[in-house]
Simulated assay, not measured.
Amino acid sequence: MAALQKRMAGEVDKLAQIDRANSAYRAARSGLETSLGPDPDLTEALLLEEAAKRTAAVEKLRAARAALDKHLASESSLATVAS
């Protein structure tokens, strides 16, 4: 009888661990859905697309800045030569 009670207590402990793990899983999933919505794959794809667009915009700005810097440097050189 004592062996059966000990085994049952062990099973109760296992079930309690499963319940805690399930609660942690549900909390993590809820957090994920809050952050990424019900379709995380779609949200990730949209975020990656937005990041690519922003990266391209930054590169255009850098190229424009480099062209402006080059223009200003040549303008300064011309002003020095003209003086």
Rank of each mutant, 00 (worst) to 15 (best):
M1C: 09
A2Q: 13
Q5R: 07
Q5E: 11
K6W: 02
K6S: 04
R7C: 06
M8F: 07
M8A: 08
M8E: 14
A9R: 04
A9W: 03
G10N: 05
D13W: 01
D13V: 05
D13I: 01
D13S: 11
L15N: 08
L15Y: 04
A16W: 02
Q17D: 13
I18N: 09
R20L: 06
R20F: 04
R20C: 05
S23F: 12
S23N: 07
R29A: 13
S35C: 05
L36Y: 02
G37I: 05
P38I: 12
P40G: 01
P40V: 03
D41M: 10
L42A: 14
T43P: 05
T43I: 04
T43D: 01
E44P: 01
E44H: 13
A45E: 12
A45S: 13
L46A: 08
E49W: 08
E49A: 15
E50F: 07
E50T: 09
E50Y: 07
A51C: 12
A52S: 04
A52P: 03
R54S: 15
A56D: 15
A57I: 00
A57F: 09
V58A: 14
E59D: 12
K60L: 11
K60I: 07
K60S: 10
R62G: 04
R62E: 14
R65E: 13
A66I: 06
A67K: 12
L68F: 06
D69V: 06
K70W: 07
H71L: 15
H71P: 02
L72S: 00
A73C: 02
S74P: 00
S74Y: 04
E75I: 05
S76I: 02
S76P: 06
S77V: 06
S77C: 07
L78Y: 11
L78C: 02
L78I: 03
A79Q: 15
A82C: 09
S83G: 15
